[in-house]
Simulated assay, not measured.
Amino acid sequence: MNAAPGPRPRPDASMTLLNEVMKRPLDPGYAAAARRRAERRAAGESTEPRVPAHVVAMLVAVGLGMIVTVAVLHLRAPQPAATQARSLLADQVVERSLQIESLTDRSVALAAAVDELENAGTLPSSLREANDRDKLTNGTTAVSGPGLVVTLTDGGLADDEGDQRVWDTDLQFVVNALWASGAEAIAVGGERLTAVSAIRSAGDAILVDLQPLNGPSYRVEAIGDPEKLQVEFARSSGPAYLQVLGTQGIESGVQSAEELLLPAGRPQTLRWAAQPGPGSGGPEPGDEESGGPEPGGAEPDGTRNESPAGSRSPGTDPDDPDDTAQQDDTAKDGA
């Protein structure tokens, strides 16, 4: 015996939610609130909120502003430990700077005393002449004479573009070109180059023997035969390199000078080199068959290897190991 069938479901049973939305779009809570307002209005009571909405918004804005202000002041307030460390570092920088100035003055005074003793006639004339030649070669004595001046100036189109600033490698290239052109003494930004001088960078600053140069214009002075320097420099790759710099907004200039005065270089401290004693197997002083290059990277003919350094160098291949090694050697020599 089959059970009696139950009532059939309504065809629109699956649309109950849609029917509720269409028939009663307002939430029952809103309807109740509207009904209460209507009752208060009918009873003669005020239906306005106790606190106006704009007052509430103003209070909220003031509260948020105070919270943000307190947070910013808390973050910007210097921490005692950081302030103390910064003050200590500043004091150390000032102290070390004073020590450097004092030692530099003492070094100059001692050098002057040594010169007085040498000029007093206590040394044979041959030794004095050799000593004078060594000082000229090493750059430890001031020199004067005619020569050539090359200037490089940062571009002023965009301060944040590194290609429009003069790099240390640019000065290295110019210095090497001048050495190869026959320069006898060179100074960069008033700093005399010696056999162990280095031109390098620290951030955006260019250093010569750890002394920062003041930009945006950099002056390279070379003493030598002006006519020979101009001719040989024009034959070198220096002018082409300066043209490359010009396309990047860096201004350059080359001019001869009738009289240049280059200061003495800083005293050199030899930590590993020493004069060989008798029987040590090393070359004796005056031995002309050593066959090696002269001090400071000079070739036997008195010129220096001209090896462009830096990505601006024309005619170098970064994939060529020989060119890369040559650039590394130039960057280490600094001149």
Results as ranks from 00 to 15, higher is better:
Arg266Val: 09
Gly291Arg: 03
Gly189Ile: 04
Ala120Glu: 12
Ala202Asn: 01
Val254Gly: 01
Ser46Val: 10
Gly224Gln: 03
Asp329Ala: 15
Ser237Asp: 00
Leu127Ser: 12
Arg10Cys: 10
Thr324Asn: 03
Gln255His: 12
Ala183Gly: 02
Glu39Asn: 13
Gln92Trp: 11
Ala325Lys: 04
Asp204Gln: 10
Asp329Glu: 12
Pro212Asp: 06
Pro216Gln: 15
Gly334Lys: 02
Leu193Met: 05
Val150Gly: 02
Ala325Asp: 14
Ser126Gln: 14
Val150Ile: 06
Ser87Trp: 09
Gly44Met: 03
Lys332His: 11
Thr122Gln: 11
Ser311Met: 11
Pro321His: 10
Asn2Gln: 13
Asp287Lys: 05
Arg96Pro: 02
Val149His: 00
Leu127Met: 13
Ala185Asp: 00
Val68Phe: 08
Val21Arg: 15
Glu306Asp: 12
Arg86His: 11
Asp105Cys: 03
Thr104Asp: 13
Pro267Lys: 05
Ile199Pro: 00
Leu89Ala: 10
Pro278Ser: 14
Arg200Pro: 08
Gly297Phe: 08
Thr151Gly: 06
His74Asn: 12
Ser280Ile: 07
Met22Cys: 09
Leu89Arg: 12
Gly282Arg: 01
Glu284Ser: 14
Asn2His: 13
Gly281Glu: 04
Pro321Trp: 11
Ala38Asn: 09
Glu184Ile: 04
Pro9Arg: 10
Thr69Arg: 07
Arg24Phe: 09
Ala43Asn: 10
Arg96Glu: 02
Ile67Thr: 13
Asp168Thr: 10
Ala113Lys: 02
Pro314Met: 10
Ser97Cys: 06
Gly265Cys: 05
Asn138Gln: 14
Ser290Arg: 03
Leu261Ala: 14
Gly246Thr: 07
Val188Glu: 02
Asn131Gly: 11
Ser201Phe: 04
Arg37Met: 13
Asp168Glu: 12
Ala183Tyr: 00
Asp163Ile: 10
Leu117Ile: 09
Pro283Asp: 04
Arg37Tyr: 04
Arg10Tyr: 09
Pro283Trp: 06
Met1Ile: 06
Asn2Val: 12
Ser144Cys: 08
Gly44Pro: 04
Gly147Val: 00
Leu157Ala: 15
Ala113Tyr: 03
Gly334Tyr: 01
Leu64Val: 10
Arg24Trp: 08
Leu207Glu: 06
Pro293Ile: 06
Gln99Lys: 08
Ala53Thr: 07
Thr151Glu: 14
Val254Arg: 00
Gly44Lys: 02
Gln172Cys: 11
Thr122Lys: 04
Leu229Pro: 01
Pro212Leu: 03
Arg40Lys: 13
Phe233Thr: 02
Asp333Ile: 06
Glu101Ile: 08
Leu26Val: 13
Ala53Asn: 07
Ile223Phe: 01
Glu184Gly: 07
Ala205Ser: 08
Leu178Cys: 00
Ser237Ile: 00
Gly334Phe: 03
Asp301Trp: 12
Leu262Trp: 02
Ala202Val: 00
Gly162Phe: 05
Val60Ser: 06
Ser125Tyr: 08
Ser107Arg: 11
Gly162Tyr: 00
Asp168Gly: 15
Ala185Tyr: 04
Val93Thr: 08
Pro318Asp: 05
Asp160Val: 05
Arg10Leu: 15
Arg106Thr: 13
Gln243Tyr: 09
Glu288Ile: 06
Met58Tyr: 08
Leu245Glu: 01
Ala53Val: 07
Gln79Pro: 00
Val93Gly: 03
Gly279Trp: 07
